[in-house]
């Protein structure tokens, strides 16, 4: 069960601005999906190692050397915000999210 308060909390962590209608809708939809996940409790996973790399590669390294890649100004051009001295001008960081 995912209450509307929990949805608000997760949305805050995810930096998603939701409307009240969305919070209500997602609370019921996500609850339904989470209930379905309970099926996994049927499986005994004691002593089973988790997998995150499916072909078994590990510690893939290369020389730490600088290479030509995309130019700084090309990357800056992707930003919709104003630039100043090769930096992107963003809104001030004023309030902590918790204060909202």
């Amino acid at each position: 069960m995912l209450s509307e308060d929990q949805v608000k909390h997760i949305a805050r962590l995810s930096r998603l601005g939701l409307t009240d209608a969305e919070i209500k809708k997602f609370s019921s939809q996500l609850t339904g999906i989470l209930e379905y996940m309970d099926i996994l409790n049927e499986v005994d996973t004691k002593d089973v190692e988790p997998t995150s790399q499916v072909t078994g590669l590990e510690n893939v390294l290369r020389e730490d050397e600088a290479r030509d890649w995309v130019k700084g100004e090309e990357l800056l051009a992707s930003s919709p915000l104003e630039k100043q001295n090769n930096q992107i001008k963003v809104k001030p960081v004023l309030a902590e999210p918790e204060d909202k």
Binding site: A11, S14, L16, I33, V90, K91, P92, L94, A95, K100
Partner: peptide, 28 residues
């Protein structure tokens, strides 16, 4: 007015329902 609001608005307006659901599921 601040960066936090900007994130909320950019992502709240920019993502569709299925993405919002999955981001929240993943965060949870």
């Amino acid at each position: 007015k601040d960066l936090y609001d900007y994130y909320l608005a950019a992502r709240g307006e920019g993502f569709g329902d299925e993405i919002k659901r999955r981001i929240m599921m993943g965060t949870y």
